[in-house]
Simulated scan of single mutants.
Amino acid sequence: MLRGEESDPPRKVPTAAVTYEVTGEGTVEITYQGASEKGTAETVTRAELPWRKEIRVPLGRAPVVSVVLGAKGGQAKCALAIKGRHVQSATADGAYGRTNCTGVLPSPAPSAG
């Protein structure tokens, strides 16, 4: 290849479909594994329930959704599904109650070539 020629376009990172869901009563703070190539976390403050987010998470990352109740408390349940299959659910109760749901995505297969 000669200098200045364009190389192959960057390869896309393989992903898997992930669904985060939070149900219950009250207003909560939700932090979840984002869809960026680096899989950075994103936060939704004062989220109204029910809340649902469907994204594609890079393989090799651990999808996670965390829930924190406010001072008034209440109850909130998180649920996590990967490729449409339920993986985990958990419940937070009371003032400043916390919980999280997490799963495992396989590492991407090494590319040949």
Rank of each mutant, 00 (worst) to 15 (best):
Y20K: 06
R11T: 12
A17R: 15
A92V: 05
P108E: 14
E5Q: 12
L69H: 10
G94E: 04
K83A: 15
E5T: 07
A90T: 05
E29K: 14
Q88L: 08
R46V: 00
V44N: 04
L49I: 11
R52V: 06
V87I: 10
Y20Q: 07
I55P: 07
T91W: 06
S89M: 06
Y96E: 11
I55A: 09
V28D: 13
A47H: 02
A90K: 08
G74D: 01
T102H: 09
E54F: 00
A90I: 01
G60P: 04
H86S: 14
E48S: 08
G4M: 08
T15D: 02
E42N: 15
P58G: 08
V13N: 06
A47K: 00
R11N: 08
T31V: 09
E21H: 06
E54C: 01
G60K: 04
C101S: 04
T99D: 10
P58S: 15
A71C: 01
G60Q: 04
E6K: 12
L105F: 03
Q33N: 03
A79K: 15
A81I: 00
G74H: 02
P14V: 07
R56M: 07
T15A: 00
G26S: 03
S107N: 09
G70K: 01
G34F: 01
A71F: 06
A17E: 13
V18C: 13
V87Y: 01
V22H: 05
V57H: 08
K12C: 03
V104S: 11
L49V: 03
S7I: 10
A71R: 15
G97Y: 09
V64N: 13
E5D: 15
S111Q: 10
E29A: 13
G70L: 00
V28Q: 08
